[in-house]
Design a protein around this nucleic acid. Structure first.
Length: 555
RNA sequence: UGGGGCGUCGUCAAAUGGCAAGACACAGGGUUUUGGUCCCUGCAUUUGGAGGUUCGAAUCCUCCCGCCCCAGCCA
Protein backbone atom coordinates (compact mmCIF):
# COMPACT_ATOMS: atom_id res chain seq x y z
CA UNK A 1 0.00 0.00 0.00
CA UNK A 2 1.24 3.38 -0.96
CA UNK A 3 1.44 5.80 1.94
CA UNK A 4 -0.29 8.90 0.67
CA UNK A 5 0.29 12.01 2.69
CA UNK A 6 -2.84 13.52 4.14
CA UNK A 7 -3.90 17.11 4.12
CA UNK A 8 -4.76 18.97 7.31
CA UNK A 9 -8.51 18.52 6.87
CA UNK A 10 -8.31 14.76 6.51
CA UNK A 11 -6.08 14.72 9.58
CA UNK A 12 -8.70 16.60 11.57
CA UNK A 13 -11.33 14.13 10.44
CA UNK A 14 -9.09 11.19 11.26
CA UNK A 15 -8.75 12.57 14.77
CA UNK A 16 -12.47 13.26 15.17
CA UNK A 17 -13.28 9.72 14.14
CA UNK A 18 -10.55 8.23 16.31
CA UNK A 19 -11.64 10.18 19.37
CA UNK A 20 -15.24 9.16 18.86
CA UNK A 21 -16.37 12.75 18.45
CA UNK A 22 -18.15 11.59 15.33
CA UNK A 23 -19.10 8.13 14.15
CA UNK A 24 -19.79 9.33 10.65
CA UNK A 25 -19.10 12.58 8.89
CA UNK A 26 -21.25 14.86 6.79
CA UNK A 27 -20.04 17.65 4.53
CA UNK A 28 -21.81 19.93 2.14
CA UNK A 29 -21.23 21.95 -1.00
CA UNK A 30 -23.16 25.22 -0.50
CA UNK A 31 -23.09 27.46 -3.59
CA UNK A 32 -25.14 30.61 -3.84
CA UNK A 33 -27.24 30.26 -7.01
CA UNK A 34 -26.13 33.57 -8.45
CA UNK A 35 -23.84 32.41 -11.24
CA UNK A 36 -22.29 29.41 -12.89
CA UNK A 37 -19.86 27.03 -11.26
CA UNK A 38 -16.21 27.36 -12.21
CA UNK A 39 -12.95 25.51 -11.74
CA UNK A 40 -12.59 27.07 -8.29
CA UNK A 41 -15.86 25.47 -7.26
CA UNK A 42 -14.57 22.21 -8.65
CA UNK A 43 -11.93 22.23 -5.93
CA UNK A 44 -14.60 22.72 -3.30
CA UNK A 45 -16.86 20.08 -4.83
CA UNK A 46 -14.00 17.63 -5.10
CA UNK A 47 -12.99 18.35 -1.52
CA UNK A 48 -16.45 18.09 0.03
CA UNK A 49 -17.80 15.19 -1.99
CA UNK A 50 -14.44 13.47 -2.20
CA UNK A 51 -13.84 13.52 1.53
CA UNK A 52 -17.35 12.34 2.29
CA UNK A 53 -16.93 9.46 -0.12
CA UNK A 54 -13.55 8.55 1.27
CA UNK A 55 -14.81 8.42 4.85
CA UNK A 56 -18.06 6.70 3.89
CA UNK A 57 -19.99 9.74 5.02
CA UNK A 58 -22.51 12.01 3.37
CA UNK A 59 -22.28 15.18 1.35
CA UNK A 60 -25.24 17.42 0.71
CA UNK A 61 -25.78 19.87 -2.07
CA UNK A 62 -27.19 23.03 -0.57
CA UNK A 63 -28.17 26.23 -2.26
CA UNK A 64 -27.35 29.18 -0.07
CA UNK A 65 -30.19 31.29 -1.40
CA UNK A 66 -30.51 33.96 1.28
CA UNK A 67 -30.26 36.95 -1.04
CA UNK A 68 -33.08 37.05 -3.61
CA UNK A 69 -31.60 40.16 -5.20
CA UNK A 70 -28.87 38.18 -6.94
CA UNK A 71 -30.27 34.71 -7.30
CA UNK A 72 -32.23 32.79 -9.91
CA UNK A 73 -33.49 29.28 -10.72
CA UNK A 74 -31.50 29.37 -13.93
CA UNK A 75 -28.43 29.01 -11.77
CA UNK A 76 -29.72 26.23 -9.55
CA UNK A 77 -30.45 24.07 -12.56
CA UNK A 78 -27.04 24.77 -14.03
CA UNK A 79 -25.32 24.03 -10.74
CA UNK A 80 -27.03 20.67 -10.36
CA UNK A 81 -26.07 19.75 -13.91
CA UNK A 82 -22.47 20.72 -13.37
CA UNK A 83 -22.07 18.83 -10.10
CA UNK A 84 -23.49 15.71 -11.72
CA UNK A 85 -21.34 16.20 -14.77
CA UNK A 86 -18.26 16.34 -12.55
CA UNK A 87 -19.30 12.90 -11.36
CA UNK A 88 -20.68 13.44 -7.88
CA UNK A 89 -23.95 12.46 -6.24
CA UNK A 90 -25.33 14.37 -3.31
CA UNK A 91 -26.85 12.60 -0.35
CA UNK A 92 -29.54 15.24 0.18
CA UNK A 93 -30.38 18.41 -1.64
CA UNK A 94 -31.44 21.44 0.37
CA UNK A 95 -32.14 25.11 0.05
CA UNK A 96 -31.35 27.64 2.74
CA UNK A 97 -34.79 29.04 1.97
CA UNK A 98 -36.31 25.77 3.22
CA UNK A 99 -35.02 26.75 6.64
CA UNK A 100 -36.41 30.29 6.71
CA UNK A 101 -39.14 29.38 9.21
CA UNK A 102 -36.71 27.68 11.54
CA UNK A 103 -34.22 30.52 11.23
CA UNK A 104 -36.92 33.01 12.07
CA UNK A 105 -37.85 31.06 15.19
CA UNK A 106 -34.23 30.87 16.28
CA UNK A 107 -33.91 34.60 15.74
CA UNK A 108 -36.87 35.18 18.03
CA UNK A 109 -35.23 32.87 20.53
CA UNK A 110 -32.11 35.01 20.51
CA UNK A 111 -34.28 38.09 21.04
CA UNK A 112 -35.96 36.39 23.96
CA UNK A 113 -32.57 35.55 25.41
CA UNK A 114 -31.69 39.23 25.20
CA UNK A 115 -29.05 38.49 22.59
CA UNK A 116 -30.60 40.23 19.60
CA UNK A 117 -32.29 43.55 19.00
CA UNK A 118 -33.98 45.54 16.30
CA UNK A 119 -31.83 48.47 15.23
CA UNK A 120 -33.13 51.57 13.45
CA UNK A 121 -29.76 52.93 12.42
CA UNK A 122 -29.37 53.73 8.71
CA UNK A 123 -26.62 51.99 6.78
CA UNK A 124 -24.50 55.15 6.97
CA UNK A 125 -25.03 55.52 10.70
CA UNK A 126 -24.27 51.85 11.23
CA UNK A 127 -20.96 52.32 9.54
CA UNK A 128 -20.13 55.26 11.79
CA UNK A 129 -21.10 53.40 14.92
CA UNK A 130 -19.03 50.37 13.95
CA UNK A 131 -15.73 52.19 14.44
CA UNK A 132 -12.47 51.08 12.89
CA UNK A 133 -10.13 48.16 13.27
CA UNK A 134 -8.05 50.06 15.78
CA UNK A 135 -10.94 51.99 17.38
CA UNK A 136 -13.83 50.38 19.22
CA UNK A 137 -17.33 51.10 17.96
CA UNK A 138 -20.20 52.71 19.83
CA UNK A 139 -23.32 50.94 21.00
CA UNK A 140 -26.39 51.56 18.91
CA UNK A 141 -28.94 53.75 20.69
CA UNK A 142 -31.47 50.97 20.03
CA UNK A 143 -29.35 48.34 21.70
CA UNK A 144 -31.25 48.34 24.98
CA UNK A 145 -34.77 47.89 23.78
CA UNK A 146 -36.78 45.45 25.85
CA UNK A 147 -37.36 41.90 24.74
CA UNK A 148 -41.05 42.69 24.23
CA UNK A 149 -40.35 45.72 22.11
CA UNK A 150 -37.81 43.80 20.03
CA UNK A 151 -40.22 40.94 19.51
CA UNK A 152 -42.97 43.34 18.43
CA UNK A 153 -40.68 45.20 16.09
CA UNK A 154 -39.21 42.04 14.57
CA UNK A 155 -42.67 40.61 13.97
CA UNK A 156 -43.71 43.85 12.36
CA UNK A 157 -40.59 43.69 10.19
CA UNK A 158 -41.65 40.24 9.10
CA UNK A 159 -45.14 41.48 8.29
CA UNK A 160 -43.70 44.12 6.01
CA UNK A 161 -44.70 47.12 8.09
CA UNK A 162 -41.42 48.93 7.60
CA UNK A 163 -39.73 50.16 4.44
CA UNK A 164 -36.75 48.38 3.02
CA UNK A 165 -33.53 49.35 4.74
CA UNK A 166 -35.22 51.07 7.66
CA UNK A 167 -34.42 48.46 10.31
CA UNK A 168 -32.36 45.38 10.91
CA UNK A 169 -32.13 42.65 13.46
CA UNK A 170 -28.72 42.57 15.11
CA UNK A 171 -26.97 40.18 17.43
CA UNK A 172 -25.96 41.81 20.68
CA UNK A 173 -22.32 40.87 21.08
CA UNK A 174 -19.57 43.43 21.56
CA UNK A 175 -19.14 46.75 19.77
CA UNK A 176 -15.56 46.99 20.96
CA UNK A 177 -14.47 43.55 19.80
CA UNK A 178 -11.23 43.55 17.82
CA UNK A 179 -12.99 41.07 15.56
CA UNK A 180 -15.07 43.31 13.35
CA UNK A 181 -17.81 40.79 12.62
CA UNK A 182 -18.54 40.49 16.32
CA UNK A 183 -19.53 44.18 16.56
CA UNK A 184 -23.26 43.49 16.69
CA UNK A 185 -23.54 41.80 13.28
CA UNK A 186 -26.74 42.00 11.29
CA UNK A 187 -28.92 38.91 11.36
CA UNK A 188 -31.82 40.07 9.20
CA UNK A 189 -32.42 42.87 6.74
CA UNK A 190 -35.63 44.04 5.10
CA UNK A 191 -35.66 43.17 1.40
CA UNK A 192 -38.93 43.74 -0.40
CA UNK A 193 -38.07 41.35 -3.12
CA UNK A 194 -39.68 38.13 -4.28
CA UNK A 195 -37.57 35.05 -3.77
CA UNK A 196 -37.20 32.50 -6.57
CA UNK A 197 -38.48 29.77 -4.26
CA UNK A 198 -40.47 31.37 -1.46
CA UNK A 199 -42.13 33.99 -3.61
CA UNK A 200 -43.52 36.88 -1.58
CA UNK A 201 -43.72 34.99 1.68
CA UNK A 202 -40.79 36.86 3.16
CA UNK A 203 -39.65 40.45 3.12
CA UNK A 204 -36.91 39.91 5.67
CA UNK A 205 -33.96 37.70 4.80
CA UNK A 206 -31.20 36.29 7.01
CA UNK A 207 -27.61 37.35 6.54
CA UNK A 208 -24.89 34.85 5.63
CA UNK A 209 -23.30 34.61 9.07
CA UNK A 210 -26.57 33.89 10.82
CA UNK A 211 -27.94 31.63 8.11
CA UNK A 212 -24.99 29.53 7.18
CA UNK A 213 -24.17 28.08 10.58
CA UNK A 214 -27.83 27.26 11.10
CA UNK A 215 -28.01 25.51 7.76
CA UNK A 216 -24.95 23.46 8.66
CA UNK A 217 -26.26 22.70 12.10
CA UNK A 218 -29.72 21.73 10.86
CA UNK A 219 -28.21 19.26 8.44
CA UNK A 220 -25.81 18.04 11.13
CA UNK A 221 -22.85 18.88 8.99
CA UNK A 222 -19.86 17.69 11.00
CA UNK A 223 -17.21 19.46 8.98
CA UNK A 224 -18.13 22.66 7.23
CA UNK A 225 -15.37 23.30 4.72
CA UNK A 226 -15.05 26.75 3.28
CA UNK A 227 -12.45 29.11 1.93
CA UNK A 228 -9.94 31.20 3.85
CA UNK A 229 -11.77 34.50 3.64
CA UNK A 230 -14.32 33.16 6.11
CA UNK A 231 -11.72 32.59 8.75
CA UNK A 232 -12.47 35.82 10.66
CA UNK A 233 -16.15 34.84 10.67
CA UNK A 234 -15.57 31.61 12.53
CA UNK A 235 -16.01 33.10 16.04
CA UNK A 236 -19.42 34.39 14.98
CA UNK A 237 -20.34 31.04 13.43
CA UNK A 238 -19.52 29.40 16.74
CA UNK A 239 -21.28 32.11 18.77
CA UNK A 240 -24.65 31.48 17.15
CA UNK A 241 -24.42 27.71 17.58
CA UNK A 242 -23.30 28.02 21.17
CA UNK A 243 -25.94 30.54 22.24
CA UNK A 244 -28.69 28.61 20.51
CA UNK A 245 -27.25 25.38 21.89
CA UNK A 246 -27.78 23.42 18.70
CA UNK A 247 -25.63 20.90 16.82
CA UNK A 248 -22.07 22.20 16.63
CA UNK A 249 -20.78 21.98 13.11
CA UNK A 250 -17.12 22.82 12.78
CA UNK A 251 -15.98 25.30 10.20
CA UNK A 252 -12.60 24.56 8.61
CA UNK A 253 -11.05 26.88 6.06
CA UNK A 254 -8.78 26.06 3.14
CA UNK A 255 -7.20 28.14 0.39
CA UNK A 256 -9.33 28.85 -2.62
CA UNK A 257 -8.00 28.00 -6.05
CA UNK A 258 -6.23 30.61 -8.13
CA UNK A 259 -5.08 29.69 -11.61
CA UNK A 260 -2.49 31.48 -13.70
CA UNK A 261 -3.75 33.21 -16.87
CA UNK A 262 -7.27 32.82 -15.52
CA UNK A 263 -9.86 34.84 -13.69
CA UNK A 264 -11.74 32.82 -11.10
CA UNK A 265 -14.28 35.10 -9.55
CA UNK A 266 -17.96 35.04 -10.30
CA UNK A 267 -18.10 38.80 -10.36
CA UNK A 268 -15.53 39.10 -13.11
CA UNK A 269 -16.78 36.12 -15.06
CA UNK A 270 -20.17 37.79 -15.06
CA UNK A 271 -18.63 40.93 -16.49
CA UNK A 272 -17.04 38.92 -19.30
CA UNK A 273 -20.44 37.49 -20.15
CA UNK A 274 -22.49 40.65 -19.75
CA UNK A 275 -20.12 42.84 -21.69
CA UNK A 276 -19.76 40.27 -24.46
CA UNK A 277 -16.07 39.57 -24.13
CA UNK A 278 -17.20 35.97 -24.48
CA UNK A 279 -20.32 34.41 -25.95
CA UNK A 280 -21.77 33.18 -22.66
CA UNK A 281 -21.12 31.35 -19.42
CA UNK A 282 -20.37 28.25 -21.47
CA UNK A 283 -17.98 29.90 -23.89
CA UNK A 284 -15.18 27.35 -24.33
CA UNK A 285 -12.67 29.95 -23.14
CA UNK A 286 -14.42 30.36 -19.80
CA UNK A 287 -13.10 28.59 -16.69
CA UNK A 288 -16.69 27.66 -15.84
CA UNK A 289 -17.50 23.97 -15.68
CA UNK A 290 -19.96 24.43 -18.53
CA UNK A 291 -17.26 26.20 -20.55
CA UNK A 292 -14.72 23.51 -19.82
CA UNK A 293 -17.25 20.87 -20.76
CA UNK A 294 -18.02 22.59 -24.06
CA UNK A 295 -14.31 22.96 -24.64
CA UNK A 296 -13.97 19.18 -24.45
CA UNK A 297 -12.33 18.88 -21.05
CA UNK A 298 -13.33 15.66 -19.32
CA UNK A 299 -14.66 15.51 -15.76
CA UNK A 300 -11.91 13.02 -14.95
CA UNK A 301 -9.27 15.55 -15.98
CA UNK A 302 -10.75 18.12 -13.63
CA UNK A 303 -10.99 15.63 -10.78
CA UNK A 304 -7.39 14.56 -11.31
CA UNK A 305 -6.37 18.18 -11.35
CA UNK A 306 -8.15 18.81 -8.07
CA UNK A 307 -6.43 15.83 -6.60
CA UNK A 308 -2.96 16.88 -7.62
CA UNK A 309 -3.16 20.52 -6.50
CA UNK A 310 -3.60 19.50 -2.88
CA UNK A 311 -5.35 21.15 0.00
CA UNK A 312 -3.66 23.65 2.29
CA UNK A 313 -4.06 26.98 3.97
CA UNK A 314 -1.59 29.15 2.09
CA UNK A 315 -2.74 31.36 -0.73
CA UNK A 316 -1.34 30.10 -3.97
CA UNK A 317 -1.71 30.29 -7.70
CA UNK A 318 -1.62 27.01 -9.54
CA UNK A 319 0.15 26.97 -12.89
CA UNK A 320 -2.42 26.44 -15.64
CA UNK A 321 0.10 24.04 -17.19
CA UNK A 322 -0.88 21.61 -14.46
CA UNK A 323 -4.50 21.65 -15.62
CA UNK A 324 -3.39 21.33 -19.22
CA UNK A 325 -1.25 18.37 -18.29
CA UNK A 326 -4.21 16.61 -16.66
CA UNK A 327 -6.41 17.33 -19.67
CA UNK A 328 -3.87 15.82 -22.04
CA UNK A 329 -3.19 12.90 -19.73
CA UNK A 330 -6.83 11.87 -19.65
CA UNK A 331 -7.65 12.55 -23.29
CA UNK A 332 -4.55 10.69 -24.45
CA UNK A 333 -5.92 7.57 -22.81
CA UNK A 334 -9.51 7.98 -23.93
CA UNK A 335 -9.80 9.97 -27.16
CA UNK A 336 -10.13 8.06 -30.44
CA UNK A 337 -7.69 9.26 -33.10
CA UNK A 338 -8.95 10.82 -36.29
CA UNK A 339 -7.20 12.34 -39.26
CA UNK A 340 -8.10 15.90 -40.02
CA UNK A 341 -6.32 18.44 -42.16
CA UNK A 342 -6.77 21.91 -40.76
CA UNK A 343 -5.00 23.87 -43.48
CA UNK A 344 -5.24 21.64 -46.54
CA UNK A 345 -3.12 21.50 -49.66
CA UNK A 346 -3.74 18.95 -52.35
CA UNK A 347 -1.34 16.08 -52.78
CA UNK A 348 -1.58 14.06 -55.99
CA UNK A 349 0.10 10.68 -56.29
CA UNK A 350 1.07 10.55 -59.95
CA UNK A 351 1.61 6.83 -60.16
CA UNK A 352 -1.50 5.81 -58.23
CA UNK A 353 -4.55 4.81 -60.31
CA UNK A 354 -7.33 7.39 -60.35
CA UNK A 355 -10.05 4.79 -59.97
CA UNK A 356 -8.53 2.91 -57.09
CA UNK A 357 -9.50 3.02 -53.42
CA UNK A 358 -7.65 1.07 -50.76
CA UNK A 359 -8.56 0.75 -47.11
CA UNK A 360 -5.94 0.72 -44.41
CA UNK A 361 -6.21 -0.38 -40.82
CA UNK A 362 -6.26 2.66 -38.65
CA UNK A 363 -5.46 2.22 -34.97
CA UNK A 364 -8.27 3.99 -33.14
CA UNK A 365 -6.24 4.60 -29.99
CA UNK A 366 -2.70 3.32 -29.54
CA UNK A 367 -3.10 3.79 -25.77
CA UNK A 368 -6.18 1.58 -25.68
CA UNK A 369 -5.95 -1.73 -27.44
CA UNK A 370 -9.63 -2.46 -26.88
CA UNK A 371 -10.52 0.47 -29.15
CA UNK A 372 -9.36 -1.70 -32.04
CA UNK A 373 -8.84 -0.66 -35.64
CA UNK A 374 -11.07 0.78 -38.32
CA UNK A 375 -10.61 1.00 -42.08
CA UNK A 376 -9.67 4.33 -43.60
CA UNK A 377 -9.86 4.99 -47.34
CA UNK A 378 -6.89 5.99 -49.48
CA UNK A 379 -7.01 7.42 -53.02
CA UNK A 380 -4.85 9.12 -55.65
CA UNK A 381 -5.86 12.61 -54.57
CA UNK A 382 -5.33 13.51 -50.94
CA UNK A 383 -4.96 16.56 -48.78
CA UNK A 384 -2.15 17.12 -46.36
CA UNK A 385 -1.30 19.93 -43.99
CA UNK A 386 0.20 22.98 -45.72
CA UNK A 387 2.66 23.30 -42.83
CA UNK A 388 3.94 19.82 -43.57
CA UNK A 389 5.57 20.97 -46.77
CA UNK A 390 8.52 23.32 -47.23
CA UNK A 391 10.15 24.14 -50.52
CA UNK A 392 13.43 24.89 -48.83
CA UNK A 393 13.36 22.98 -45.57
CA UNK A 394 15.91 23.35 -42.78
CA UNK A 395 17.96 20.34 -41.72
CA UNK A 396 15.80 19.22 -38.79
CA UNK A 397 12.54 19.45 -40.75
CA UNK A 398 11.33 15.85 -41.00
CA UNK A 399 8.39 16.49 -43.27
CA UNK A 400 7.82 16.87 -46.98
CA UNK A 401 10.03 18.85 -49.33
CA UNK A 402 11.15 18.55 -52.95
CA UNK A 403 12.67 15.12 -53.49
CA UNK A 404 12.03 14.02 -49.94
CA UNK A 405 10.42 10.78 -48.95
CA UNK A 406 7.91 10.75 -46.13
CA UNK A 407 5.37 8.33 -44.77
CA UNK A 408 1.64 8.86 -45.14
CA UNK A 409 0.38 7.38 -41.92
CA UNK A 410 -0.78 3.76 -42.26
CA UNK A 411 -0.53 4.06 -46.10
CA UNK A 412 2.61 4.38 -48.21
CA UNK A 413 5.97 6.04 -48.46
CA UNK A 414 5.76 8.86 -50.98
CA UNK A 415 8.38 11.11 -52.56
CA UNK A 416 7.67 14.65 -53.63
CA UNK A 417 8.32 15.19 -57.32
CA UNK A 418 7.12 18.72 -58.00
CA UNK A 419 4.87 21.55 -56.94
CA UNK A 420 2.32 23.45 -58.97
CA UNK A 421 2.07 27.19 -58.34
CA UNK A 422 -0.28 29.92 -59.38
CA UNK A 423 0.80 33.20 -61.03
CA UNK A 424 1.56 34.69 -57.61
CA UNK A 425 3.96 31.91 -56.72
CA UNK A 426 1.55 30.30 -54.25
CA UNK A 427 1.77 26.56 -54.04
CA UNK A 428 -1.51 25.12 -55.30
CA UNK A 429 -0.71 21.44 -55.40
CA UNK A 430 2.02 19.03 -54.51
CA UNK A 431 2.87 16.08 -56.72
CA UNK A 432 4.50 12.90 -55.59
CA UNK A 433 4.98 9.24 -56.40
CA UNK A 434 4.41 6.32 -54.09
CA UNK A 435 6.36 3.17 -53.57
CA UNK A 436 3.88 0.26 -54.00
CA UNK A 437 6.15 -1.98 -51.94
CA UNK A 438 5.65 0.13 -48.82
CA UNK A 439 2.00 -0.67 -48.24
CA UNK A 440 1.07 0.07 -44.65
CA UNK A 441 4.02 2.43 -44.32
CA UNK A 442 7.03 0.14 -44.03
CA UNK A 443 9.76 -0.36 -46.60
CA UNK A 444 10.77 -3.98 -47.25
CA UNK A 445 14.38 -2.91 -47.61
CA UNK A 446 14.28 -1.50 -44.10
CA UNK A 447 15.00 2.10 -45.03
CA UNK A 448 13.91 4.55 -42.38
CA UNK A 449 11.81 7.62 -42.87
CA UNK A 450 11.67 10.24 -40.14
CA UNK A 451 8.49 12.03 -41.12
CA UNK A 452 4.98 10.63 -40.87
CA UNK A 453 2.18 12.83 -42.13
CA UNK A 454 -1.53 12.66 -41.55
CA UNK A 455 -3.79 13.05 -44.56
CA UNK A 456 -7.34 12.70 -45.77
CA UNK A 457 -8.66 11.36 -49.04
CA UNK A 458 -10.15 14.08 -51.25
CA UNK A 459 -13.06 11.77 -52.04
CA UNK A 460 -13.67 10.63 -48.48
CA UNK A 461 -13.53 13.79 -46.42
CA UNK A 462 -15.73 16.81 -45.83
CA UNK A 463 -15.22 20.43 -44.80
CA UNK A 464 -15.82 21.58 -41.23
CA UNK A 465 -15.30 24.69 -39.15
CA UNK A 466 -12.68 24.57 -36.44
CA UNK A 467 -12.41 26.97 -33.56
CA UNK A 468 -8.94 27.26 -32.13
CA UNK A 469 -8.82 28.51 -28.58
CA UNK A 470 -5.97 30.01 -26.70
CA UNK A 471 -5.77 31.39 -23.18
CA UNK A 472 -8.35 34.10 -22.55
CA UNK A 473 -5.77 36.29 -20.84
CA UNK A 474 -2.24 36.97 -21.88
CA UNK A 475 -1.00 37.86 -18.42
CA UNK A 476 -0.05 35.36 -15.77
CA UNK A 477 -2.09 37.39 -13.31
CA UNK A 478 -4.87 39.09 -15.28
CA UNK A 479 -5.63 41.23 -12.23
CA UNK A 480 -2.20 42.82 -12.30
CA UNK A 481 -2.99 45.98 -14.26
CA UNK A 482 -1.78 49.48 -14.82
CA UNK A 483 -3.50 52.34 -13.02
CA UNK A 484 -6.90 53.01 -14.48
CA UNK A 485 -7.12 49.69 -16.28
CA UNK A 486 -9.04 46.62 -15.24
CA UNK A 487 -8.63 42.95 -16.00
CA UNK A 488 -10.30 43.26 -19.39
CA UNK A 489 -7.13 44.96 -20.62
CA UNK A 490 -5.37 41.61 -20.07
CA UNK A 491 -7.66 39.83 -22.49
CA UNK A 492 -5.82 37.98 -25.21
CA UNK A 493 -7.12 39.33 -28.54
CA UNK A 494 -6.21 36.05 -30.19
CA UNK A 495 -8.02 33.77 -27.78
CA UNK A 496 -10.26 32.58 -30.61
CA UNK A 497 -9.31 31.80 -34.21
CA UNK A 498 -11.97 30.41 -36.48
CA UNK A 499 -10.85 28.46 -39.50
CA UNK A 500 -13.12 27.03 -42.13
CA UNK A 501 -12.76 24.38 -44.79
CA UNK A 502 -10.80 22.07 -42.61
CA UNK A 503 -11.13 18.51 -43.88
CA UNK A 504 -12.20 15.60 -41.73
CA UNK A 505 -12.58 11.91 -42.48
CA UNK A 506 -16.11 11.08 -43.64
CA UNK A 507 -17.01 8.74 -40.81
CA UNK A 508 -17.06 11.74 -38.45
CA UNK A 509 -20.39 12.72 -39.98
CA UNK A 510 -21.93 10.15 -37.65
CA UNK A 511 -20.72 11.78 -34.47
CA UNK A 512 -22.70 14.13 -32.25
CA UNK A 513 -21.98 17.29 -30.29
CA UNK A 514 -19.83 16.56 -27.26
CA UNK A 515 -17.84 13.89 -29.09
CA UNK A 516 -14.17 14.17 -28.21
CA UNK A 517 -11.34 12.93 -30.37
CA UNK A 518 -7.72 13.55 -31.18
CA UNK A 519 -6.94 15.01 -34.56
CA UNK A 520 -3.70 13.25 -35.05
CA UNK A 521 -0.65 15.49 -34.61
CA UNK A 522 -2.93 18.50 -34.05
CA UNK A 523 -4.53 18.16 -30.66
CA UNK A 524 -7.77 17.20 -28.99
CA UNK A 525 -11.04 18.40 -30.47
CA UNK A 526 -14.66 18.24 -29.52
CA UNK A 527 -17.82 18.69 -31.57
CA UNK A 528 -19.54 21.94 -30.58
CA UNK A 529 -23.29 22.10 -29.91
CA UNK A 530 -23.50 24.91 -32.48
CA UNK A 531 -22.97 22.25 -35.14
CA UNK A 532 -25.66 21.61 -37.73
CA UNK A 533 -25.98 18.76 -40.21
CA UNK A 534 -24.76 21.20 -42.88
CA UNK A 535 -21.88 22.58 -40.90
CA UNK A 536 -20.00 20.68 -38.28
CA UNK A 537 -18.00 22.72 -35.78
CA UNK A 538 -15.05 21.50 -33.76
CA UNK A 539 -13.55 23.15 -30.71
CA UNK A 540 -9.89 22.61 -30.08
CA UNK A 541 -9.67 21.55 -26.47
CA UNK A 542 -5.90 21.71 -26.35
CA UNK A 543 -2.93 21.12 -28.58
CA UNK A 544 -0.64 18.16 -28.27
CA UNK A 545 2.69 18.89 -26.63
CA UNK A 546 4.93 20.11 -29.39
CA UNK A 547 8.66 19.77 -28.94
CA UNK A 548 9.23 20.74 -32.57
CA UNK A 549 7.57 24.10 -32.06
CA UNK A 550 9.62 24.54 -28.91
CA UNK A 551 12.82 23.75 -30.76
CA UNK A 552 11.99 26.24 -33.50
CA UNK A 553 11.40 28.97 -30.93
CA UNK A 554 14.82 28.40 -29.44
CA UNK A 555 16.58 29.20 -32.71
C1' U B 1 -2.92 50.22 12.13
C1' G B 2 -6.71 46.18 15.79
C1' G B 3 -7.95 41.20 14.83
C1' G B 4 -7.54 36.66 11.97
C1' G B 5 -4.23 33.69 8.82
C1' C B 6 0.08 32.25 5.85
C1' G B 7 5.66 32.00 4.29
C1' U B 8 9.53 24.84 1.95
C1' C B 9 12.28 24.46 -5.86
C1' G B 10 9.94 28.62 -11.42
C1' U B 11 4.51 26.69 -9.78
C1' C B 12 1.63 23.46 -6.54
C1' A B 13 2.95 20.47 -2.31
C1' A B 14 4.96 16.52 1.54
C1' A B 15 8.02 16.03 5.73
C1' U B 16 4.44 16.27 12.82
C1' G B 17 12.83 16.89 16.63
C1' G B 18 16.34 12.13 13.04
C1' C B 19 18.93 11.52 5.33
C1' A B 20 14.25 18.29 2.37
C1' A B 21 8.88 13.22 -0.85
C1' G B 22 6.07 13.69 -5.23
C1' A B 23 3.73 16.32 -9.41
C1' C B 24 3.90 20.14 -13.10
C1' A B 25 7.35 23.24 -15.63
C1' C B 26 12.22 23.37 -17.51
C1' A B 27 16.92 20.98 -19.65
C1' G B 28 19.23 16.72 -21.85
C1' G B 29 19.06 11.64 -23.78
C1' G B 30 16.49 6.93 -25.56
C1' U B 31 12.21 4.40 -28.00
C1' U B 32 8.53 5.58 -31.68
C1' U B 33 4.34 4.83 -38.33
C1' U B 34 1.47 11.13 -34.07
C1' G B 35 8.02 16.11 -33.53
C1' G B 36 2.15 12.66 -29.37
C1' U B 37 2.61 8.68 -25.72
C1' C B 38 6.29 5.97 -23.02
C1' C B 39 11.31 5.38 -20.65
C1' C B 40 15.92 7.36 -18.44
C1' U B 41 18.83 11.52 -16.39
C1' G B 42 19.35 16.39 -14.24
C1' C B 43 16.79 20.19 -11.45
C1' A B 44 16.29 23.16 -2.83
C1' U B 45 23.96 21.38 0.83
C1' U B 46 18.69 24.01 2.52
C1' U B 47 12.90 25.71 4.23
C1' G B 48 11.35 34.54 4.44
C1' G B 49 15.68 36.66 7.84
C1' A B 50 18.71 36.86 12.40
C1' G B 51 19.70 34.76 16.95
C1' G B 52 18.84 30.73 20.62
C1' U B 53 17.68 25.48 22.67
C1' U B 54 19.46 20.51 21.14
C1' C B 55 24.03 15.17 19.76
C1' G B 56 20.54 16.66 15.93
C1' A B 57 15.86 22.07 13.87
C1' A B 58 11.81 23.24 7.93
C1' U B 59 9.79 21.40 12.67
C1' C B 60 10.77 24.06 19.49
C1' C B 61 11.85 29.42 21.62
C1' U B 62 12.81 34.92 20.79
C1' C B 63 12.95 39.04 17.69
C1' C B 64 12.43 40.89 12.81
C1' C B 65 10.58 40.90 7.56
C1' G B 66 6.92 39.90 3.80
C1' C B 67 2.09 38.49 1.82
C1' C B 68 -3.36 37.55 2.29
C1' C B 69 -8.27 38.29 4.76
C1' C B 70 -11.95 41.30 7.84
C1' A B 71 -14.08 47.24 8.74
C1' G B 72 -21.61 45.34 3.08
C1' C B 73 -28.23 45.85 5.54
C1' C B 74 -22.99 40.52 -0.23
C1' A B 75 -21.65 35.45 0.25
Amino acid sequence: MEEKSRDFIREIIDADLASGKHKEITTRFPPEPNGYLHIGHAKSIYTNFGIAEEFAGKCNLRFDDTNPVKEDVEYVDAIKRDVEWLGFKWSDIHFASDYFDRMYLLAEQLITMGLAYVCDLSPEETKTYRGFASKPGKNSPYRNRTVEENLDLFRAMKKGEFPQGSRTLRAKIDMSSPTMCLRDPHMYRILKKDHHRTGNKWCIYPMYDFAHCLEDSTEQITHSLCTLEFEPNRPLYNWYLEKLDIFRSRQIEFARLNLSYTVVSKRYLRKLVEENFVTGWDDPRMPTLSGLKRRGVSPAAIRNFCSVIGLAKRNSTVDIALLENKIREDLNKTAPRVMSVLNPIKLVIENYPADKTEHFDYVVNPEDESAGVRPTPFTRELYIERDDFMEDPPKKFFRMGPGREVRLRYAYLVTCTSVIKDENDNIMEIRCTYDPDTKGGNAPDGRRVRGTLHWVSADHSFPVEVRLYDRLFNKENPMDNEEGEDFTSSINPDSLTVITNCLVENHMKNENPGFICQFERKGYFCIDPDSTPEKMIFNRTITLRDSWKKKKKHK
